[in-house]
């Protein structure tokens, strides 16, 4: 019985390598079908610009998939990468077609509020300088705030975890100030700080600082005491104990704090940009909504989703690098 099962699993492994290029070809076909639908099904409500452009994008993707199928027969690495994407590559054009149908082709969704995909494409082509500029401003603001928050949070966490007297003074501050949603301090900070930009940096830093501090602290205080004993009998100084024992041992916790802090910083960033700083993606979103430019809003949202996801991925990459010694760490 068990031998039969073994044979079956062996076969399924074999077929999955064969299925790869089949799935890829199906995906390419679906993308081509989407392009056909976009071109030949007449637009219902109005003549959208970039309809042909959107179809071209679909055809380009189909061509890339076919290329991947061909190259994948020679390159095992590429084949393994694309294999996991296969199902999504089929689902995406279907979802895109549905979106296209409900908005541009059938007009079932009310027009100004729901933009068809080609409208987004139009925004990217027409308004990219402003979008790029907004993205840059957001990046600078977020980068400054998160850097300040992460560095001070890490330092504070290590200090509280290590020194009783520093803990005595910092702990109440952490307990009172930390849990306050930093956006609640926004009105206060806008008149306390010389500029709305510096106020926003402070708030983003605060949002990052709290989880980083708490988790660094918890990481440092949960270090196995035996690690210190070993180092002490081998002649380690306090400095060595902090930098070579406590901090490396606490690093997995620190990264959890950084993930939470980064997440909190995104929402603070957007609110700060909407309320005070007159630039950045948050401000662009609000501006687009004010002018009823919903396509612009969706376009900006999509960029923002990709940017935030990219930042989290980057943090995971750094973590995988630094914590390579950990077994079976979560994969992003």
């Amino acid at each position: 019985m068990s031998s039969v099962e073994l044979v079956e699993t062996g076969e399924s492994v074999n077929t999955s390598t064969v299925r790869l290029w089949l799935q890829g070809l199906v995906a390419a076909a679906v993308w081509i079908a989407s392009a056909a639908l976009i071109i030949w099904w007449p637009n219902a409500v109005r003549k959208w610009p970039m309809t042909q452009g959107l179809a071209n994008v679909c055809l380009t993707i189909a061509a890339l998939i076919v290329l991947a199928v061909i190259v994948g027969r020679w390159s095992e690495r590429l084949a393994r990468r694309t294999q996991t994407l296969g199902a999504w590559l089929i689902a995406l054009p279907i979802l895109l077609s549905l979106w296209e149908l409900f908005t541009a082709k059938l007009g079932w969704l009310p027009v100004p509020f729901f933009a068809p995909p080609q409208a987004l494409l139009d925004v990217y082509v027409e308004d990219w300088p402003r979008l790029a500029d907004s993205l840059l401003h957001s990046a600078i603001l977020l980068g400054s705030g998160v850097a300040v928050g992460a560095i001070t949070g890490f330092t504070a966490g290590v200090a509280i975890g290590w020194s009783r007297s520093i803990g005595y003074w910092l702990h109440p501050v952490l307990r009172i100030l930390g849990p306050v949603p930093s956006t609640a301090l926004l009105p206060l900070c806008f008149f306390l700080f010389p500029s709305s930009w510096s106020a926003s940096v402070f708030l983003i830093a605060l949002a990052t600082w709290f989880p980083v501090t708490v988790l660094t602290w918890s990481g440092v205080s949960s270090v196995d005491k035996a690690y210190y004993d070993v180092a002490r009998t081998l002649g380690a100084s306090q400095r060595f104990l902090i930098f070579k024992v406590a901090i490396p041992a606490a690093l997995p916790h620190v990264f959890v704090g950084l993930f939470m802090g980064l997440g909190a910083s995104f929402s603070t960033l957007v609110v700060a940009e909407m309320m005070g700083v007159k630039s950045g993606i948050g401000w662009y979103l609000q501006w687009a909504q004010g002018w009823a430019a919903y396509a612009n809003m969706y376009a900006a949202l999509l960029i923002m989703a990709l940017a935030c996801s990219g930042l989290i991925s980057a943090l995971f990459l750094i973590r995988d690098r630094l914590l390579a010694w950990q077994q079976g760490a979560m994969k992003w």
Partner: peptide, 25 residues
């Protein structure tokens, strides 16, 4: 120098760096 009941190696250091711990400290 003590060899403890548990080896208590530092999981974030490779074997070589664990052995080098005392000299480094």
């Amino acid at each position: 120098v003590v060899v403890f009941q548990d080896p208590t190696l530092y999981p974030w250091r490779r074997v070589w760096d664990n052995v080098a711990l005392g000299l480094e400290a």
